[in-house]
Design a protein around this nucleic acid. Sequence first.
DNA 1: ACATACTTGCTGAATATTCATTCAAAATAT
DNA 2: ATATTTTGAATGAATATTCAGCAAGTATGT
Lengths: 234, 234
Amino acid sequence: MNEALRNPKMRTAVKMRAGAAQKDVTEVEKKGRKASKETRRLQLIEATIDSLARRGYADTTLADVADGAGLSRGIVNFHFESKEKLLVATLQFMADEYANHWYSALEKAGERPADQLWALVAADFDRRICTKRKLAAWCAFWGEAKSRPTYQALCGARDVKYQEIVVSLCARLKEEGGYDYVVEPMALAVSTMLEGLWLRLMMGDGLTREKAHEAAVEAITAMFPRHIARTGPK
Amino acid sequence: MNEALRNPKMRTAVKMRAGAAQKDVTEVEKKGRKASKETRRLQLIEATIDSLARRGYADTTLADVADGAGLSRGIVNFHFESKEKLLVATLQFMADEYANHWYSALEKAGERPADQLWALVAADFDRRICTKRKLAAWCAFWGEAKSRPTYQALCGARDVKYQEIVVSLCARLKEEGGYDYVVEPMALAVSTMLEGLWLRLMMGDGLTREKAHEAAVEAITAMFPRHIARTGPK
DNA sequence: ACATACTTGCTGAATATTCATTCAAAATAT
DNA sequence: ATATTTTGAATGAATATTCAGCAAGTATGT
């Protein structure tokens, strides 16, 4: 496939298919031009995630991204200005997607803190979010985050707001259940456990999304024994 | 300091100091030559960890490593053959150090499973192991692990053996305390929580080693309520 | 004791490679 | 016709690797 895309003739075929998909979008929107531009950007971002997952941060080249998207070499510098900006846009994209996902899961959950916590956990191991491909891309960014402030800021995906919510859920659960843990450390343990499971999912061979979810449910059930999950892992 | 080391005269001074230290070793060992070679390798490995922590994997160059060690440009290819081999040796070094550390902590702990679990937890947040510098280096490797089998193998620092031990501890604790969790998921949750705390320590701003340890103790205490920590975090 | 050849560790300039970026020209859309 | 998007070859910067030679030590012979 990589080889095929290096051949201009083959690439044309790919482009035409992409063009057809784009036309459908165009018919819905008013400005086809702008839609096209946004489509290309998304296409390049997806190709970037692929490359990060396949080759890691250090070996992700613009050539590989362009090939993955079935476009030519100069294309990234036209749509994003530089490699750095492409990577930031990619991380931003993933961070937004992640945040929107858990936030809407939280809105759909009931009022009770236990339901909300289970909803957050389930959201983390949802099909759409928790793919090997995306986890690998996340981890590639984590590896560079400490030395790049821009990444560091965006990598707080489970960011301040998320942490505040987990803290408040732990506080409400404590009150409801009469537990006697200290709230902040407990909330930290819960959210880092989810992160740790992500990390393992990406590295470990045998671990599946379902098993990771099960582990989270098992641990949280033990931590909050008077709040049984109404919705376990599927 | 970096500037100073770029100056050959200054570098000579550094080398002479290193030479003096080496002489002491020579008096103890028989072959001073070989000791020197191993010393240099360790010196370069330490410089590599520094560079990884300071600049991340992608920006770690041989020039930076050589400068950090106060030696010349060609030095790495003389002692390790290639950049790749230097990085593998560095990861190997960290993995060995980590494994030795938790293993000896386990040996020093008592017979009771609870004591052993608390010892493992404390080992993870020990001063010698859990430094910002080393955590950053670990994370740099994690980011590349998925795309490089060699790293992937070594990055299972909390590897199969470690996981087996945690599983058996969870099983023994379950029996002792009459808990009713499922063992494997629980063990997975415990060990990934520790990993997740490491990840946060490296990225998070306000989090300290002590707070992370406290969170681990809080969560594990909640998970195994009939086994109170005899040794909490300092 | 001294000289000679030999070994080892190291240096730093030269080389080769990889890759982001640029840009003139072609293709495509409006 | 004009503007926009895309191409792909050319450019240049960064950097891993090579290697001829230097320096300091070590063994051997006289």
